[in-house]
């Protein structure tokens, strides 16, 4: 067990190191002075320039520079944004929770819808229900998110006026920034109109969450269906029937667990797609998350922000993937424990 956790830890550290190397390299790849790309400051005063060069050890070898870059990253000194002039660490950790919140709700919702539907389709393999669900999932899977989001805006906010067009909450409410998760923040705060603020925030959330959910649900449905179809003809399922268990008992006791165990790591893999979709959706709904922020940075050629934002997002994805994979293997008694860790 220890060896097994250690292997995942090794993989995690090495992957993060590669990401750090890449982000450091970006400072040199981007046009302009590497020092400016690293700090994000316009250093017109030679004295300031000297001080910064000293801090980043620009006159030493590349490895020493990288080492000091790592130390600064660890200390939370990620440089400053070109466009806003604010520290990047602050900016990223202000906007990241909004994205995580959006993706979490979308993921939970799609698991809640996708897994039962997947079971339904898998248990009715090659029948009308299965075919209908499969067709629906193909449609959901192949719809481009940005287009779907625009359609939803056209229909639900412009035509029907059910939901607000963009943003996270109406400007009328002043929610203190505490955890970064807006629903949690409203819950914890002592605002006068908590209930109204909650309803307003949820209304803002419906469309972005739904646009991401549709794609993710389609993936979850297909994965679950396949797993169920594979488990159903297994000998132990037949043996359980032969033991005189009813269909419900067989499914609940033997099929569910065996179908879900192998797809848990596969679901972790979907976090990349989920996050990418969340970032696109954020731009369309002006959701103040990391995706929106990062794409603005790309528009404005804000090199330090691109460097730091890429590092933050990829670290999030890698952490999620490796952690869920580790979890899946720890709770799965059917798998060989000594297997190598992989992404």
């Amino acid at each position: 067990m220890f060896r097994f956790v250690l292997r995942h830890f090794n993989l995690y550290v090495l992957t993060l190191l590669v990401l750090c190397i890449f982000s450091f390299w970006l400072a040199y790849l981007f046009p302009g002075d590497p020092l400016v790309n690293l700090t994000g400051l316009t250093l017109n005063d030679p004295a300031d320039y000297q001080a910064m060069a000293q801090k980043y050890h620009m006159d030493s070898g590349i490895l020493v520079q990288f080492w000091h870059y790592l130390v600064l990253l660890w200390d939370g000194d990620w440089g400053f944004s070109f466009s806003s002039g604010l520290p990047l660490y602050q900016e990223i950790f202000d906007s990241l929770p909004a994205t995580v919140e959006l993706s979490t709700y979308a993921l939970l919702l799609s698991l809640l819808i996708g897994i039962p539907l997947g079971f339904l389709a898998g248990l009715r393999h090659h029948r009308t229900t299965d075919n209908a669900l499969l067709a629906a999932s193909v449609v959901g899977y192949s719809t481009p998110v940005f287009w779907l989001a625009l359609l939803m805006i056209l229909l639900f906010s412009l035509q029907l006026g059910w939901f607000p067009l963009s943003g996270r909450i109406s400007l009328l409410f002043d929610v203190p920034h505490d955890t970064g998760f807006i629903l949690v923040d409203i819950w914890l705060s002592d605002m006068p109109n908590k209930g109204a603020a909650m309803i307003n925030a949820v209304q803002h959330m419906v469309m972005p969450v739904l646009s991401i959910t549709i794609v993710t649900t389609a993936i979850v449905l297909r994965l679950t269906r396949r797993a169920v179809v594979e488990v159903m003809p297994k000998e132990y399922v037949q043996a359980a029937y032969a033991r005189g268990l009813s269909k419900h008992q067989v499914i609940l006791r033997h099929v569910v667990r065996n179908a879900m165990l192998p797809i848990l790591p596969l679901l972790a893999m979907q976090s990349t797609i989920l996050l990418t979709n969340a970032m696109i959706v954020e731009v369309i709904y002006s959701w103040p998350g990391i995706g929106n922020w990062l794409i603005q940075a790309i528009y404005q050629r804000d090199y330090p922000a691109i460097r730091a934002g890429m590092l933050a997002v990829s670290t999030l994805v890698v952490s999620l993937t490796i952690f869920i994979d580790l979890l899946a293997r720890i709770i799965d008694p059917t798998r060989e424990r000594g297997a190598r860790a992989k992404i």
């Binding site: 132990y236 033991r243 005189g244 667990r257 065996n258 059917t334």
Partner: peptide, 20 residues
């Protein structure tokens, strides 16, 4: 099947649920 007939299947490892 529950009360009167019992079966021992040929392949014990495949006939047992690996996750239970």
């Amino acid at each position: 099947m529950r009360e009167d007939i019992a079966v021992i299947f040929q392949n014990p490892v495949n006939s047992l649920d690996p996750s239970a």
